[in-house]
Design a protein around this nucleic acid. Structure first.
Length: 505
RNA sequence: GAGAGUGUAGCUCAGCUGGUAGAGCAGGGGCCUUUUAAGCCCAAGGUCGUGGGUUCAAGUCCCACCACUCUCACCA
């Protein structure tokens, strides 16, 4: 036996051998009395009472020594050594155990608590049951019991992302990452539910996309013979609900953006958006600050955590800086209201690259992200963005060149975006029209004009604060993950098959 | 999109200035009734990412392509 096909064939023969011996290789249920964690927690009383308990899990290490064997069984809660002896379980069951089980098999084990010579808490098996015979071999990761040093680890990131079940079996820290991600999401739900936000679901398939600046995925509805878009944001639908009088709503959902794939971008990603009537953007500054800081404390037991090489302190209050205050300070100029000419001059002087066909908004964004963003080491709110960058945000009450908008930055990543929602239908129409002009000038990310949404606004959107929070990035920060692929179970990957020449661009 | 790197057995990796592929683990056979990276003995195992090229000879050199990783640029 050698090739993978031969290894699988050998295991199929074991399946047959089990059947021939009257052993079900794929039975229906198994009654387990304890998880492995519970076994350890109650070890003393189980040992004292000499009761038989049962566990179920996957065999991840096997050490046969003639007429007795040790193995390690892994379930979701941990890993336990078992001791199987011929004279305890009988000759036939022992032979079957010894010859017909493999690493990767799911098994149920009944037995009593024992401690080995070397002091390891162990299940002394009286009966074993095959629960599911694995016919494809696992990578074998060996672990030094004392030092915890791991050998022959399954590490190739490509293979890990492509074969996530294997990754989860073999790499315990991966299981932990996804448990933490789940806690992030359930924390947010609880936090918003407690504040009487209503969880709603809006369409992922939309006749017209909107709510962000991004290129969408397009798909075809066969019967309607109509193009539909996968949503790039929930925003416009959620605000329609506020118009309808549901005055606190939120949604946690996948958005889809037809754009590049890299360390911080997956084409589908999870976003939380929430909207509340009768409040403005400052309400959400406070909400984000308390939600995220309490989340960090809840999950890590402390307001500080380590991300890559930085120690990040989430304790409130976070930094607050106004967009133009920060930008003016860095440039030594007053750029509020500056025209394109002036912005380009400043960019040139400070060696900031000037993108082709840059607009005023684009240049402001460029200067800010080049000069100011990298200086945020701790969680920071950036407030009051230029109007050019924010077609759905309400004009600032003190300055019509600005909008009431903020973003929060953590570890150099933008984690949320929020504003006082634009509810003047005529101003909104004018902004949409501006987007349409940008679009025909070649900006493929500019928003289309949404007549149906404008009609909703004409019914009256109360004063509203809105917020979008990137769940994946939050999960990255909370799990100290360098790539979004580490916090998405099944990230989008390119096909591994060879591409023909005409696929190449 | 640009630059750098990686791709060899199921897994982790060697493979020199080109000479026809190696180890450990896993798997097979044997021994072993408290081992823990269990151990000892035996045997087996490879489209060297894909496609071309140079050469008497290519895992190794050249070209193209594919995938992934890192850095940089852009969208959350």
């Amino acid at each position: 036996m050698e090739t993978i096909q031969e290894l699988i064939a050998a295991r199929r023969e074991k399946v047959q051998a089990l059947r021939n011996a009257g052993v079900q290789p794929y039975p229906y249920t198994y009654e387990r009395s304890h998880t492995i964690e519970q076994f350890y927690q109650n070890f003393d009383s189980i040992k004292e009472s000499e009761q038989e308990i049962s566990i179920a899990g996957r065999m991840v290490a096997k050490r046969v020594m003639g007429k007795a064997s040790f193995a390690h069984i892994q379930d979701e809660t941990g890993r336990l050594q078992i001791y199987v002896k011929r004279d305890d379980i009988g000759t036939d069951p022992y032979q079957q155990y010894k010859k017909l089980t493999d690493l990767g098999d799911w098994m149920g084990l009944r037995g009593k608590a024992m401690i080995t010579k070397t002091g390891e808490k162990t299940l002394h098996v009286t009966e074993w049951t095959m629960l599911s015979k694995a016919i494809r071999p696992l990578p074998v990761v060996k672990e030094d019991a004392e030092t915890g040093k791991r050998y022959h680890e399954f590490t190739d990131p490509d293979e890990r992302y492509r074969n996530r079940p294997l990754d989860l079996v073999v790499n315990p820290e991966v299981r932990k990452i996804f448990r933490t991600r789940a806690r992030v999401i359930s924390f947010i739900r609880r936090f918003l539910d407690d504040r009487r936000y209503l969880e709603v679901e809006t369409p992922a398939l939309q006749p017209l996309y909107g709510g962000g600046t991004a290129r969408p995925f397009v798909t075809l509805h066969n019967q309607l013979k109509k193009n539909l878009y996968l949503r790039i944001a929930d925003e416009l639908y959620l605000k329609r609900l506020i118009v309808g009088g549901l005055d606190r709503v939120y949604e946690i959902a996948k958005d889809f953006r037809n754009e590049g794939v890299d360390r911080t971008h997956n084409p589908e990603f999870t976003m939380m958006e929430c909207y509340i009537a009768f409040e403005d953007y400052m309400y959400h500054v406070n909400l984000v600050e308390s939600m995220v800081s309490e989340m960090v404390k809840d999950i890590h037991g402390s307001y500080t955590l380590k991300y890559e090489d930085e120690e990040i302190d989430f304790a409130p209050p976070w930094g607050r800086v106004r967009f133009f205050d920060a930008l003016n300070e860095k440039t030594g100029e007053d750029l509020l209201g500056a025209d394109l000419q002036k912005l380009k001059e400043v960019a040139k002087r400070l060696h900031v690259p000037i993108p082709e066909g840059a607009s005023v908004g684009k240049m402001q964004d460029e200067l800010f992200s080049e000069l100011v963003e990298p200086t945020f080491t701790r969680p920071t709110f950036v407030l009051d963005y230029p109007v050019e960058l924010s077609p759905l945000a309400k004009r600032h009450r003190d300055n019509p060149l600005l909008v009431e908008r903020f973003e929060a930055y953590v570890a150099g990543m933008e984690i949320c975006n929020a504003f006082s929602e634009l509810n003047d239908p005529d101003d909104q129409r004018a902004r949409f029209e501006e987007q349409v002009r940008a679009r025909s000038a070649g900006d493929e990310e500019a928003m289309p004009l949404d007549e149906d949404y404008l009609e909703a606004l004409e019914l009256g959107l109360p004063p509203t604060a809105g917020l979008g929070l990137g769940i994946d990035r939050l999960a990255m920060i909370l799990t100290n993950s360098g790539s979004i692929r580490d916090v998405v179970l099944f990230p989008l990957l390119r096909d591994k098959e060879q591409h023909s020449e005409e696929d190449a661009e």
